[in-house]
């Protein structure tokens, strides 16, 4: 998962495995930019990133810049998780947010308490630099 062992020591939560298929996504996040994939042949948008369009199986893909604006589709305050990194962070908020571009993304809501969250509430992307190699896409209440 992690690129460097030293990252794993400081950062206990799971890190994504970055490979040739998903590298543009993770490199954009590292630049604090959000891009989603769009099929050059049929125009279908997709998340998470993958090599082929699920609608027409075309490998011809462009990356569409997103504004990072979204609304909360649903959420939960996690009170119990024994996994390292998360057990120290309880309670934390898991959520699906729906990007303005229409795609639902699983994420954490940050900079807010569970009782402040409402479904439909506008949120905005925040780029959390988890390690020098990995930046995660999280969301906070829109300002």
């Amino acid at each position: 998962m992690a690129d460097e062992k030293s990252d794993q020591k400081k950062y206990a939560k799971p890190l994504p495995r970055i490979d040739e298929e998903n590298r543009p996504w993770w490199e954009a996040l590292k630049r604090h930019e959000l891009y989603i994939q769009k099929c050059r042949d049929c125009g279908d948008l997709r998340y998470y990133p993958r090599a082929l369009c699920t609608n027409c199986l075309s490998p011809r893909t462009e990356w569409l810049r997103c504004g990072g604006k979204a609304r909360v589709y649903t959420f939960t305050a996690t009170m119990q998780n024994q996994a390292p990194g998360f057990r120290e962070a309880l309670p934390y908020i898991m959520a699906y947010v729906e990007l303005d571009e229409g795609l639902k993304v699983l994420t954490n809501l940050v900079e807010c308490k569970p009782d402040e969250v409402k479904i439909g509430m506008p949120v905005e992307a925040v780029f959390e630099d988890a390690t020098p190699a990995v930046t995660l896409l999280k969301f906070r209440p829109a300002r």
Partner: peptide, 20 residues
């Protein structure tokens, strides 16, 4: 790769459906 970093649990995945 797009889920595990955020700490999903089995019960959490169902809880989000209950909330919705």
């Amino acid at each position: 790769q797009y889920e595990a970093p955020f700490g999903p649990t089995t019960v959490g995945a169902y809880a989000m459906m209950a909330r919705r």
